[in-house]
Amino acid sequence: MSDHAGHATSDLLDLARRIATTVAATALEERRRGIAVESTKSSPVDVVTAVDRETEARIRSLILDARPDDGIFGEEEDTHVGTSGLNWVVDPIDGTVNLLYDIPAWCVSIAVVDGPPDPLHWHALAGVVVNPVTGDVFEASRGGGARLGDQELHVNEDVELSKALIATGFSYSAERRRAQATTLLQVVPRIRDIRRIGSAALDLSAIALGRLDGFYERGLNPWDHAAGALVLREAGGRVGGVGGAPESSELLVAAAPSIFDELLSLVVDAGGATG
């Protein structure tokens, strides 16, 4: 870790919060005026809206105004390479399909990490996840705990896997969705129930709040989980991948500590890290 990790994470968190809440309010206004698909990305159902692109452009502008030497790694634009050793990992709208359908489960996710924009090699310093519709602002700083507004967050304790409420997500690729459905068939009988909310950042934050007990998904991008994973870890949760590795596109499993190992084994054994 570079010496930048020691500099005030509280300042980074304050900036991340200020930017996330500012752009979230504007994105909500734009949603209320109406929205349409602007283009698609990896498949015909992987949509991009003008709100995604405009929100990321605003986030980038606000970051660079405040910290011109930092890098920015986001979903909609090319990486901005910085010189400070810090990178902002940005998902302007996580849950774009929910946004499109006016389902109130989409968010702005902003994290700042020490190191490259790769979860295998970074150290997350601060993260904010804002749901503009509900007004929920989840936030965390490294070693500073996690909060929803003024409420300190902590995961559910003493959870049993058979009574655990688990969330997951699905790929935009039809072939991968088929494999994920096969995994799900083996997971569902072993747990209380499954939820598919449509935003990994909100799923991870929900575990921190105790609204969920666990989450797993294959194929996530770094911006999908950078902020949410920090919120969950600072709330006492565990996040990781296959064989003790950090979370990555190969697999992300997140859960209350009492069920993490068991959930990870279940998902891997069910083929959740392949296909």
Rank of each mutant, 00 (worst) to 15 (best):
H121K: 15
E160N: 05
S162A: 14
R178A: 10
K163E: 14
W223D: 07
A270C: 14
R31S: 12
P104D: 09
L62C: 05
L266K: 03
V113I: 10
R142T: 09
S84M: 03
G240I: 12
R67I: 12
A245R: 15
L266Y: 10
I59A: 05
E234K: 05
S84D: 12
P104N: 03
Y172F: 07
G82D: 08
S10I: 06
V97C: 02
P119S: 12
H4W: 12
W88G: 01
D118Y: 08
A270M: 02
D70V: 13
E217L: 09
I110E: 01
S258C: 11
G85Y: 04
L264V: 12
R18F: 00
G219F: 08
S141I: 02
V188E: 14
V48N: 11
P92G: 00
C107D: 02
K41M: 10
V137W: 00
S109I: 01
W122P: 09
V253I: 11
R31Q: 13
P119M: 14
V268W: 05
W88M: 01
V155K: 05
V268I: 15
E247G: 10
D65N: 10
T9K: 13
G74M: 11
R147P: 00
D3C: 04
D94T: 08
F215Q: 08
G241I: 09
L204P: 05
G272Y: 05
R192A: 14
T26N: 04
R233D: 06
S258K: 09
A105L: 13
G219L: 11
Q186T: 04
D261E: 14
L209P: 01
Y216G: 07
L230Q: 09
S42Q: 14
N156I: 10
A105W: 12
E29A: 13
V129P: 00
V47H: 15
D46A: 13
G95A: 13
P132V: 03
G149E: 05
V97D: 06
V37M: 09
V253T: 11
S199R: 05
